[in-house]
Write a protein that binds this DNA or RNA. Structure first.
Lengths: 104, 104
DNA sequence: ATGTTGTGCAACCATTAGGTTGCACTCAAT
DNA sequence: ATTGAGTGCAACCTAATGGTTGCACAACAT
């Protein structure tokens, strides 16, 4: 949960990873399964999954000998809240500056 | 406002850009001004500003012959809301699957 | 008129990121 | 016992990214 914000954003900055996340959002799946539909290789997908896992957006769920992954929506919400907080803070600060400037 | 989500996330996936954004969140500033404090060159900063501008996170504010940039908090909020919506949607979907699985 | 400050453009360099192929290993099923 | 599916690891390639320096030009100040 104490995931650094920047790496999470970086992980979300790739189209293929969004394809993977979207698929996982429908239902948990393994790298091999994903590879049957997505236009990139199984190994490429595995790398993406590793990245997504490291930033906490995804979680491995061992099922027998295969490793499925499920998306962690909670981490999305957490990231969203942080962005929201930062955005509104800056917005407010810049408004304050405007007010001060007009007072001069 | 109709900014693509993925490029915005990609833009937010770099530490130096966050340094810039943080500085701009305190007060609008030009590339040259930023360069006096940040550890990278003016040109590097200019490139980052161009990226941030293209995804709508930042806006140029011409002041005389210099070009200051202000951060657009609203775009942060917009991005945050989108992530939130997606995250909760997936969360809910996976819960449904769990319920169905348990029913079997 | 001249120097200085802020920008913009271009070439160039090094590193990383995304992708691929190939091989080895394990576990299930026939 | 052997085949096949699912995984992991490693080497390798290419393109994009982040950074730099150098130069040219406009605008303000001296």
């Amino acid at each position: 949960m104490k995931e650094a914000l920047v790496p999470v954003c970086a992980a979300l900055g790739d189209e293929n990873r969004w394809s993977i996340l979207t698929r996982l959002g429908e239902a948990p799946a393994s790298a091999s399964t994903l590879a049957t539909t997505l236009p990139i290789s199984r190994q490429a997908i595995a790398k993406h999954l590793e990245i997504l896992q490291r930033v906490g957006l995804v979680e491995p769920v061992p099922v027998g000998r295969e490793v499925r992954y499920r998306v962690l929506g909670s981490e999305f919400s957490a990231t969203a809240r942080r962005l929201e907080a930062i955005g509104t803070a800056w917005e407010r600060r810049l408004l304050d500056i405007k007010v001060i400037a007009e007072d001069l």
